[in-house]
């Protein structure tokens, strides 16, 4: 089990979660920037990947360009939360679903090929759950990147 990250591993995560250099040998470029070698960078990334600390090295899609999507919420009795969540999760159109502490206690993202399809999915969710869906599409983004700075100083030791 991996418990602490090397400085190189920390630097790779914080600097390259925002994108790899777009060139033939990106790990060589990273090595140059971090004062390391291509072999060390490759083995560090491999170790992070093996430990599940990286979910992948790959493409990150722009949800907004993938069709029509919205944040949505349901207010359901606590006792029904799991069964209602199961109904919502059945939809391939739902890619996130979180239980949250609030009157609106089920929060999910619905994505469809276009707006009409999105409206239809939401209507179907309302019909199957019996509760009105609060529909909160993004009108404007004030922050475009999902990467945030990782604070390793306070990392708990037991990363599993």
């Amino acid at each position: 089990m991996k418990t602490t990250l090397t400085q190189l591993e920390q630097d790779i995560i914080n600097q390259y979660q925002k994108g790899l250099p777009l060139c033939s040998t990106p790990y060589k470029a990273i090595a140059q920037a971090l004062n390391s070698s291509e072999e060390e960078v490759l083995s560090a990334i491999q170790a992070l990947d093996n430990a599940g600390i990286l979910s992948r090295v790959g493409a990150v899609f722009n949800h907004k360009k993938a069709g029509s999507s919205t944040l949505a919420a349901l207010a359901v009795p606590e006792a029904e939360l799991d069964s209602i969540a199961e109904i919502v999760n059945q939809f391939d159109h739902v890619n996130h679903n979180y239980g949250r502490e609030h009157g609106y206690n089920l929060w999910f993202v619905v994505t469809a090929s276009d707006e009409q399809a999105l409206i239809e999915v939401i209507a179907k969710i309302e019909q199957l759950t019996g509760y009105p869906v609060l529909v909160l599409p993004m009108e404007k983004s004030y922050h475009i990147d999902l990467a945030f700075n990782i604070n390793f100083a306070e990392s708990p030791r037991g990363c599993h």
């Binding site: 790779i12 995560i13 390259y16 979660q17 925002k18 994108g19 790899l20 777009l22 060139c23 033939s24 990334i45 992070l48 430990a51 599940g52 600390i53 990286l54 979910s55 992948r56 090295v57 790959g58 493409a59 990150v60 899609f61 722009n62 907004k64 360009k65 990147d145 999902l146 990467a147 990782i150 306070e154 990392s155 708990p156 990363c159 599993h160």
Partner: peptide, 28 residues
């Protein structure tokens, strides 16, 4: 491939090709 990646980024279809961390595993 490099040109296509650049183009997909410019068109906003992909945000980046990156080392994507699992925040939960990092303690978040």
């Amino acid at each position: 491939v490099l040109a296509m990646t650049t183009d997909l980024k410019e068109r906003g279809i992909i945000r980046r090709i990156a080392a994507v961390p699992n925040h939960y595993k990092l303690g978040y």
